[in-house]
């Protein structure tokens, strides 16, 4: 299953964003951020204690099941006064959750997390980015491994000179995409597709901001 991968913002940044806002309501989410331990119940509780120690009045907290679902607003409406009393909502979800809530309630929303990438859980507690949603998928020729995402430079014709023992030049803990692609294509007997020169990529897949509508009759 794909997950929104997040990381807690530095305490100083959260403090700056909440400057002048004495009363804060904190919202977590029961889906991705619970799994990544960045915005589940324990993290919301810890944030509540931290803000209280810094002199903020925490008017209440909640952990909604799926923050990016449009039904989240119904839960917040049911909570009523603790939400209404708050000067700001400190939201410990990914940016999808923050924006979903921000569009539906007339309150200042402050993200407590940075959204890093949309990732796949590849093992217990391990998450990897496997797709950048570029709109011009090339993995039919790369053994099903995306070089646009898995290569730090998004190269489509093979490795750069920084590849080292199958690892990336920026981080020895990250695999070199082109070593992985070479190994996969080699196993499949399809190295010819790696030998084929790839033209410069089409960056016009879906001009940002992406928008999609199901055609109606």
């Amino acid at each position: 299953m794909i997950r929104s991968i997040t990381q807690l913002k530095p305490a100083e940044e959260i403090e700056r964003l909440l400057d002048g806002m004495g009363r804060v309501f904190i919202i977590g989410c029961g889906t991705c951020v619970t799994l990544t331990q960045t915005g589940g119940m324990p993290e919301v509780e810890a944030m509540k204690n931290e803000l209280s120690e810094k002199g903020k009045v925490v008017t209440g907290t909640t952990v909604v099941p799926v923050a990016c679902d449009n039904l989240t607003i119904d839960i917040l409406n049911d909570i009523q006064s603790p939400v209404k009393q708050a000067d700001a909502l400190l939201i410990m979800t990914c940016a999808y959750g923050v924006q979903t809530i921000g569009h539906q309630i007339n309150k200042t929303v402050i993200p407590a997390l940075n959204t890093l990438f949309i990732g796949k859980e590849s093992g217990a507690g391990q998450f990897n980015e496997v797709c950048k949603q570029c709109g011009t998928c090339v993995i039919g020729e790369t053994g099903g491994i995306c070089p646009v995402t898995a290569c730090h430079k998004g190269l489509v014709n093979g490795p750069c000179g920084g590849t080292n023992n199958g690892k990336c030049e920026i981080d020895a803990n990250k695999d070199c995409a082109w070593t992985s692609i070479y190994n996969r294509l080699s196993e499949l007997g399809r190295l010819d597709s790696m030998r084929t020169y790839q033209k410069p990529r089409n960056h016009l897949g879906e001009p940002s901001p992406g928008k999609f509508e199901i055609p109606m009759e």
Binding site: G158, P159, G161, G166, Y182, S186
Partner: peptide, 14 residues
């Protein structure tokens, strides 16, 4: 002297 060398040589030929 890249290791592994094979992917490097494919790029070289390109």
């Amino acid at each position: 002297e890249a290791n592994p060398i094979e992917p490097q040589l494919i790029k070289f030929e390109k």
